[in-house]
Design a binder for these strands. Structure first.
Lengths: 185, 185
DNA sequence: TAGAATTTTCAGAAATTTCTGAACATTAAG
DNA sequence: CTTAATGTTCAGAAATTTCTGAAAATTCTA
């Protein structure tokens, strides 16, 4: 469990950024370490490498599993649980993207849907309702777009992301070809 | 400063979600209230409506200004500062998107760039370096894509987001038309 | 089934973040 | 310049989150 200073910096940074990405410092560090380390690690090794308690590692692993970011391995003749980051970097990014969509968008969509069911009782409320509707429409569109992106095959996603301002041209091209017809799905 | 229960729920929810979106509870509430309220509000009104201290409001407003999410107004004959959410819901979404990109992507890109400058000293480090490079490439692509989206005009962005699986068809169409030529920008 | 190895849980400790309110700073008006 | 109105700051209080470590639970082996 020797860690190069290189890896050290990587791990520490992901710890710092962790909170911005939706988990706490040690969970961020654990994830970074599992990502950068070539072989699976067990709880003991994680605790030692990151200088945190065994209990904390256990909780962290549970959270990373809830995010579907790590997977369990076993070494023959060893009862300990070993973990690695789940899949390629791209898989991980996709998973983080999807989990965050779920946590950051869905609860709000669901609340706003609720609020929109009420009949506004006065002018004040009617105006508020309108604003809520605007927010709702936007978030719904975002959610659908995020969904579309999630479902794209790796190659298509790559192409799309590399288009740059070519996107505009493509959109223009499209409206020329299909002018006058509705077209999602 | 009477707030309908409708608005109340909206404000409280944005408080709860606040931390997931990058600010704390009261800042989330302040932002929600300024968004849903039809007219500009001053610090006193915010403090009263949200039952928080005057000092807290001052700090919150400062943070919302750092996010460029609110703008200052003045009522003739009144020295107080009044605030509203800055621009339309779409403007706000764009701003949040850009600020978050800055805070969540840029620091990491900059660290990884740093790390990649070092020559790996052994096999272990070389492997780590490779992983870092993968993460870096992905985040860089993400950053560029986010940039592209930020720069799209409202209408183009809307069209793109509504494409749904039509995106795939469009990408296919494009590769047919330009097969063999490079094309970002 | 006993017992050793491993993982999980969770009460309280520690660390961190947020909030208050009083002191201070700034501004505008007279 | 003085005063009153408003805005800002920041030390410490309060609230929240994270972490530890010992006890409990689980799992495997013999």
């Amino acid at each position: 469990m020797k860690i190069s200073s290189q890896a050290q910096a990587f791990v520490l940074h992901f710890g710092e950024m962790g909170s911005r990405w939706g988990f706490n410092r040690t969970v961020g560090q654990m994830f970074a370490l599992l990502t950068i380390h070539p072989s699976p690690l067990n709880a003991e090794q994680l605790a030692q490498a990151l200088k945190i308690s065994r209990g904390n590692v256990s909780m962290g692993l549970k959270e990373l599993q809830a995010w579907r970011l790590i997977e369990l391995h076993h070494q023959p003749g060893d009862r300990k649980d070993y973990f690695t980051a789940a899949g390629s970097i791209w898989d991980l990014a996709r998973t983080v993207f999807e989990e965050r969509r779920k946590r950051e968008l869905d609860p709000t969509l669901s609340l706003l849907r609720q609020l929109l069911l009420n009949e506004p009782q006065d002018e004040q409320e009617a105006q508020a309702q309108e604003k809520i509707q605007e927010v709702y429409s936007l978030l719904e569109l975002l959610e659908e777009f995020a969904n579309t992106l999630s479902k794209l095959e790796h190659n298509d996603l790559l192409k799309l992301m590399k288009l740059g301002s070519g996107i505009v041209k493509l959109l223009k091209l499209k409206s020329k070809l299909t002018s006058g017809t509705s077209n999602s799905e």
